[in-house]
Design a binder for these strands. Structure first.
Lengths: 245, 245
DNA sequence: TCAAAAGTGTTCAAAATACACCCATGT
DNA sequence: ACATGGGTGTATTTTGAACACTTTTGA
């Protein structure tokens, strides 16, 4: 049920998108069931991706795939690596699926991988035109994926970790108003480590771009936490220095 | 004068290589004159790159291009970004050249960019099969390049800078035996900053993978500097910790 | 009144920074 | 003998790490 398109498709280049969200104190990834094809059993979930159009940039292709899948625009989205092993598609199930769905199923496809971070605010994916169903899967529960998508997914998480040491991208995953405990939990999950509460708070607040609001959590069965938000303007105007040598 | 090849060429995907070397206390990039074509004036230098073969990985393609150009193998080589603007080739001179040289000059080409670091030891490039001439150009003297190669080059330097804060890749650019002053100079160039000599030395020597040799410079008109080398094994066995939160 | 998570300060150790003079060599 | 770059130590400030109790709320 491929959709009509006036665009010419490039049979050799695709984008794949590792879309991450944070909810229920967990990091989750958006996976799709591939389009169902008669006679082709398919129990692999996949990262949302597709061939690019000849008249769009790589970034535009990634945005488009994200939009088609989630209905969201203006989302944090960044290229992190390209994957081009000629054998990246070698599972029989993948080959059968491609034969049924692609104009050139045998074509060698290089994929440019992006990751994107979605705020819990915007959490509900709109099932897309080309995917049957989309699911948020906790990153600890990701099983065998289609194609080489496990490699891509793993590398996205590594990349995210590297970025987080230098850039405050964690905020892209949180709602506009968040508690410091949420932020800390997010850092702990991405960095795969335990952080000291007092030291973490001191460090975050010293930055001056995480600003306290005069607002608290409501309806929690414990002391309600103060809410904070991330001030992009203050962040931009901050001097960002590296570790020195 | 394209060389004979048993390989099928993928007309849509290329690799481009930003090859950096360090000599005369300067960082230099290896640029080529494109193959000369009758009637097509061409005064742009270019990054060495080429279309990939259908049966090689991206890394293999990058290694191959490097080998064809320099005769070197087992060189530090790393993918850093892919470039795919449909208009990345828009200068008339580039179009004319492609028309003269490519089987599908109009094809849209996505390029996967690599950077590679070459030791001063191995410094002399062997002019390649597909390039007329190769030059080491000081990075401060790079003029307008072919295609979008200025973008690619700029981004490679940024990437190198980011890497250097975390990984000791600078050693890939130095000879086996080097002085701490050379190392410091290299850091200063890449990071675009001035470093304090005493603090730099203390910090480098504390790592334990830069080891002093019982050997000194010879024939210099000043106190000869001790030589050091980078111990890969010690580096690998070191705990590499991040800045914490 | 209890359970659950929020919030808060101090001490110690390690790392970063700033800074100036003597040394060994070739010409 | 002089010009050139090599090599070294200390004091101060800043940052990181470890650690335990009181507070506020809903159930």
């Amino acid at each position: 049920m491929a959709q009509a398109s006036e665009h010419i498709i490039n049979p050799n280049v695709s984008v794949d998108n590792v879309i991450l969200g944070f909810a229920d104190n967990e990091l989750k990834v958006l996976l799709i069931e591939r389009e169902r094809v008669e006679e082709v059993p398919d129990d692999f979930l996949a990262l949302p991706g597709n061939l690019i159009y000849e008249d769009e940039t790589l970034d535009q292709a990634a945005e488009r795939v994200l939009y088609e899948l989630t209905g969201l625009k203006n989302i944090f989205l960044e290229q992190f690596h390209s994957f081009g092993d000629p054998n990246r598609i070698r599972k029989k199930q993948d080959l059968d699926w491609l034969k049924a769905i692609r104009a050139h199923p045998e074509a060698r496809v290089i994929t440019v991988a992006y990751y994107s971070l979605i705020k819990a605010d915007n959490y509900n994916p709109t099932p897309s035109a080309f995917a049957q169903k989309a699911f948020w899967v906790p990153i600890t529960d990701v099983g065998q994926l289609a194609f080489d998508h496990n490699d891509i997914f793993y590398r996205a998480l590594e990349h995210l970790k590297d970025k987080l040491y230098k850039y405050p991208i964690g905020f892209e995953l949180l709602p506009e108003k968040f508690t410091l405990a949420q932020l800390q939990r997010l850092y702990e999950i991405i960095l795969q480590t335990k952080l000291d509460k007092r030291n973490f708070r001191r460090k975050i607040l010293k930055t001056k771009f995480v600003v306290p609001l005069n607002e608290k959590q409501r309806g929690v069965a414990h002391k309600p936490a103060r809410l904070y938000h991330f001030d992009k303007e203050r962040f931009k105007s901050t001097e960002h220095r590296y570790v020195s040598y």
